[in-house]
């Protein structure tokens, strides 16, 4: 239902305002918060992310959000993770040496090919690998806005819902149960980006996850 509180996890990552603006635009009530009670009582949760893996993991740990995120996942609560938020779901990242991540999805985070310009910055196509309500009213190969230098490489290909080509074919949409994660930024991806948040929130609020 519109008007429901949607928690946006604040762990000092910046750029939270864009996500909150997008959620507000869709008619929901965004709450940027680092309060575990708020996050655990929200109808759905968004984990934004920009910056470096090491800082992100440290900030998540220090704010107590690492445990909250694990709890959300173990309770199969609707969670949308963006960019660095997606990458920290894997076991570890090669960024700046090696950094342990949350490890809720088997696989690692690798650096993009040195044959392409880094960061991967701009609009690129997402190939839909599965039929899923997250893609409702979004055409196959629609463009989304990316900005990153590393990418998630999950071991289990069944979690790969969308891929994007940039030097390599990478997982750009990852779905496991009620966890949806994108390498691109839906809040910066125009109308299709807003539509993806809207699809996620509708699924979350209707309990439609798990049926597909």
């Amino acid at each position: 239902m519109k008007g429901e509180m949607i928690a946006i996890i604040d762990y000092g990552a910046g750029n939270l305002r864009s996500v909150a603006n997008a959620i507000a635009k869709l008619g929901y009530q965004p709450r940027v918060t680092n309060n575990p009670g708020d996050v655990l009582s929200a109808a759905a949760v968004i984990l934004p992310g920009v910056g470096a893996a090491a800082d992100t993991m440290r900030n998540l740990a220090e704010s107590g959000m690492s445990e909250v995120i694990r709890q959300l996942i173990s309770e199969e609560r609707p969670l949308f993770a963006i960019c660095m938020g997606m990458q920290v779901m894997l076991q570890g990242s090669e960024e700046g040496g090696w950094h342990e991540c949350l490890g809720v999805i088997p696989g690692i985070v690798k650096r993009l090919s040195s044959e392409v310009k880094i960061p991967h910055m701009g609009w690129n196509q997402v190939k839909q690998r599965i039929a899923h309500p997250i893609f409702d009213a979004i055409p196959d190969e629609a463009n989304f806005y990316f900005v990153h230098s590393y990418y998630a490489d999950p071991d289990d290909t069944s979690v790969v819902a969308g891929t994007t080509d940039y030097g390599v074919s990478m997982c750009s949409v990852m779905i496991k149960g009620n966890l949806v994660a994108t390498q691109f930024h839906p809040e910066k991806s125009g109308e299709y980006g807003l539509r993806m948040y809207s699809n996620f929130l509708q699924m979350a609020l209707k309990g439609r996850f798990g049926r597909c």
Partner: peptide, 8 residues
């Protein structure tokens, strides 16, 4: 602008 424009 950022309340109504969803591009970088």
């Amino acid at each position: 602008v950022s309340k109504q424009v969803f591009i970088p």
